[in-house]
Amino acid sequence: MENILNLIQNLLIADFRTATPILLAGIGLIYMYRAGIVNIGVEGTMLIGAFAGSYGAYIFNNVWMGILVAGIVGGIVGAIFAFLIITIKADQIVTGVAINILAIGLTTTLNRILFGVNTSPPEIPSIGKISLPYLSEIPFIGRLLFNQLSMVYLALLLVPITYYIFYKTTIGLKIRAVGDHPKAADTAGVNVFKVRYWTTIFGSMLAGIGGAFLSTGILSFFTEDMVAGRGFIALAAVIFGNWNPWGVLGASLLFGFGDAIQIRIQAMGSNIPYQFLIMVPYLLTITALAGLVGKVNPPKASAEPYIKEE
């Protein structure tokens, strides 16, 4: 009995960790998606963030500098994406696909140039744990919730903040309006382009940081293609979470839990087909989209450019 409880506790601790990059990118995606931008380039943005984070941490020998670099580089990728889809009005989906292909090429190439081929990756500083006094001594949930990597707390904190921004401030109101009916927002005096630019840049920064958590939090080095679909899972989490920060938190934890179990199964070398666990987020998202579990309600102007006649 004790063993099972222990196992569950360990899995849940791991869950918070595996869920964090999904949550960070997912929150980033909410900002974009709610403003009408479907960025399937988050996968690539995360990968670039993962590389930038590890390289930044390596150069400055400080993990937080790495995170900062990842955020900035993610923001730059977001700005480029924003320019292409907002100013030039290129197709969002195809541009996203291009960013993903570009990201694989860029990170792999840079990794080989900067860290060299055939050498084992250098150890870089990584994110440490913060144990909250007293709270972490609470049985079971203490170790679970209050003895985590510092980035986990930050990611969790973003959930209520984002919720508050969306529903209690004019910033959130503008974002929601722009994503549903950009022309109405424009006539009401909202600068549609500005809102879309900033949500894309800010959201991509979070995606970059989410990626950096993979290379500086979960692992402490960069490996090629280390994001491995987590950007798409984040997208899935946003849809499954019905574009709501709390929903996305729930979805991230759910999807992260599958991931945590899967890693454990693979590590044990067990024969249990872990692949089905990996499929779960995707299957759930499809059923959610089809309206089979609850009803999702995407922003009306998703993936549509705003063309203003002047």
């Binding site: 541009t95 291009a98 570009l102 990201a103 694989i104 860029l106 792999t108 080989r112």
Partner: peptide
């Protein structure tokens, strides 16, 4: 590195679509 090809591919898509 062969990955340069991916960079070129990505760039081609971006330029065409833009």
């Amino acid at each position: 590195p062969v990955s340069v090809i991916s960079i070129i591919t990505g760039l081609v898509i971006i330029f065409v679509i833009a």
